[in-house]
Amino acid sequence: MPSNNATSRSRAAKGSNKPEALLALYRQMLLIRRTEERLSQLFADGEVPGFIHLSIGQEAIATGLGAVLERRDTIASTHRGHGHALAKGVELNSFFQEVMGRETGVCKGRGGSMHVADMSAGMLGANGIVGAGMPIAVGSALAHQVRKTGGVAVVFFGDGALAEGVLHESLNLSALWELPALFVCENNGWSEFSPTSKQFVAPLAKLADAFGIPAETIDGNDVEIIADTAGRLISEIRKGGGPRVLECITQRVRGHYEGDAQKYRDPAELKDRDKIDPLPRAASRLSVLGVSDALLAALETEVMAEIDAATEAARAAPLPGFAAAQADVYTPAGA
């Protein structure tokens, strides 16, 4: 079993004559990127209500994980969860319809961007409460263990959530019970308007080590490394190895939420963005593997067509009715 990035690299390199796997990853990242760019525009135009947190620049993490998870696996996500939802298999049309507050949205327009969930896809919900996904994933992992589903529960969380007490409780409990759980930290260096360095003193890997949980810290903008590492960790977990921690170092390209003027942030932080951005990185690797620019352009057209169609379908979709929503606080009798 490969245990470091060099081996992961060589495995990816083995695919040199077969770029299909990376192409699929690239396409998924592209779909998330273009979806969020569209949402940014729709938000600016007043077509997306509330507030939205974009994961632009961080798509490789959701994509790499999504590629190695199975339908039976479950994920708990965060306020910045669009990518997680799409990569876990939430359907694009019902996703757009949810974020745009439509009756036909995956959650009937009741939750919006911060609460996208799809139980049939094992997506247990984005979450408006920082850190709340961790115990939910622990419980989901418990269910996988007790019910012997063979599934794994994954929780995505930001570096800001390191300071929440439930992280420590959840690491402890999952180690204690040897649960099939993967903790994925998307460390983008920012917790809302504050740098992580002013929020938390302990490196996550050391923290995990204290609980006896194997942890790895990797480049969170290299989708191949992420998919390889995640694939290996998930298979260790699935075999009964207990929990794992995966920290992905990445960058938040946009503000904390759309409309954030980011006065607190030095723009120089993003000056090397093109070298870091997971999409151009994957694209240049694809050309090394012999994928033509024309093929990438065709992918772009295809993805944009899907997003255009999803946008139009959402615009045309009905708005939710109040009475039906109010009647759905509890499970109807006999259901």
Binding site: T74, A76, M119, L124, A132, M134, P135, I136, A137, V138, G139, S140, A141, L142, A143, H144, V146, R147, T149, G151, A153, G165, V166, E169, S170, N172, L173
Partner: peptide, 18 residues
């Protein structure tokens, strides 16, 4: 002694068939 995680885990377990 982890009340937040005891109940949080109950939520995740309930969502996953227990």
């Amino acid at each position: 002694i982890s009340e937040a995680t005891i109940v949080g885990a109950a939520v995740g377990a309930a969502m996953t068939g227990l």
